[in-house]
Design a protein around this nucleic acid. Sequence first.
DNA 1: AATGCGTTAGATAGATCAATCTATTATATT
DNA 2: AATATAATAGATTGATCTATCTAACGCATT
Lengths: 210, 210
Amino acid sequence: MENDCESLYRSRMGKSVDTRLRLIRAAEQLFRVQGFSGTGLKQVTAEAKAPWGSLYHFFPAGKAELGVEAARWAGAYYAEGWRRSFGWSDVPGEAVEQVFLMEAKILEGSDYRNGCPIASTTLDIASLDENLRLACNEAFDLWRAAIVAGFDAHGAPGEEAEALAAFVLSAMEGAITVARAAKSPEALVHTGRYVREAVDRAAQTWDESR
Amino acid sequence: MENDCESLYRSRMGKSVDTRLRLIRAAEQLFRVQGFSGTGLKQVTAEAKAPWGSLYHFFPAGKAELGVEAARWAGAYYAEGWRRSFGWSDVPGEAVEQVFLMEAKILEGSDYRNGCPIASTTLDIASLDENLRLACNEAFDLWRAAIVAGFDAHGAPGEEAEALAAFVLSAMEGAITVARAAKSPEALVHTGRYVREAVDRAAQTWDESR
DNA sequence: AATGCGTTAGATAGATCAATCTATTATATT
DNA sequence: AATATAATAGATTGATCTATCTAACGCATT
């Protein structure tokens, strides 16, 4: 419903959407580095090169609303990343491990600052703001669904695909956290290997001829 | 060095250590619920029922120092928990899965507020304060070492024990995060099961007769 | 040209933040 | 008992935070 309004809105207006999107993306990037609570709105407008007045023009409910939109944006964007990753290999375990290794590269390339905006927002605010918690959960759910779809395409039974995807997503999120604390890719590399083995083993029982 | 000073200090003084420890524990608990940046020092003193002046008496460097001590306390405390958990079962995979299920109970019993103080501090501040990052990393390292010791006791080769422990720890941290966003134990239950299977499979190759 | 609306612009308020400061109370040692 | 030091107590400061407010600007359509 709101999405329909939004896309209609976007098709009519031009420049303003840029500002709105720049604010969302700046928030999302800052939340990755320093969390939701650690990020000030002044900093968001500065990073987005957006005027202060525009922030409350586009997000009348303030920081919480911006957080929800940042979570939605990250949810949709990285779900697409997961979808693409399953095209990297016909072996689902291999594709999943590649995501871990790619994430390790991203962390290394950003001095371990470029983490997950959903995880940091969840740990900061999920217990205090129900709307933000739901937005974070929906982002995780989109990612989980993308992983499930990747397993489904290889004939995985629905229930196993769901459980396995929850495991893959959890392992990824935790490995990012541990790797950031250590400033080392080790957690991602080791976790990625064990996750791949688990996926490969599960995939052996799947019916590829479906 | 500082630890020697501290224990000497503690053996002489009585009540003050209570206050100091109450501040650390209050900080640790608040960081779990709402993260490092989301927690105000006023709130810490209120929760600890400690006078404001005592905070800067015991932690002259302020919030960062309190965060380091909270991370150290959590590191030592939960390392002991991991150590105990390996006494719960002779099968290491079973013991590890029990930790996942116990964590699920802790989350359920706290309305999914009682998360990991190290993870939330890492995602909030690890990129901005090197001392805090190191303290978080040391906490994760203590936990990882405790898990390694559990595997070693079953004859695991050192290198495999290290990698497997990094995987177990990452999966646990991520599952807590995802479970909190969902307000559901599912991520912990599913992740715990796949982690147990991975540990069991690895343990089959270990020499129990050492 | 005039009108209307979306957007920009930034000053400002009011609350809260971390941190500093002085003074008082409690405790241990001499 | 006297002294020194640790700990308590809380007022206060200056910075920063979120949010509100008014005014101006840009750009359509009329």
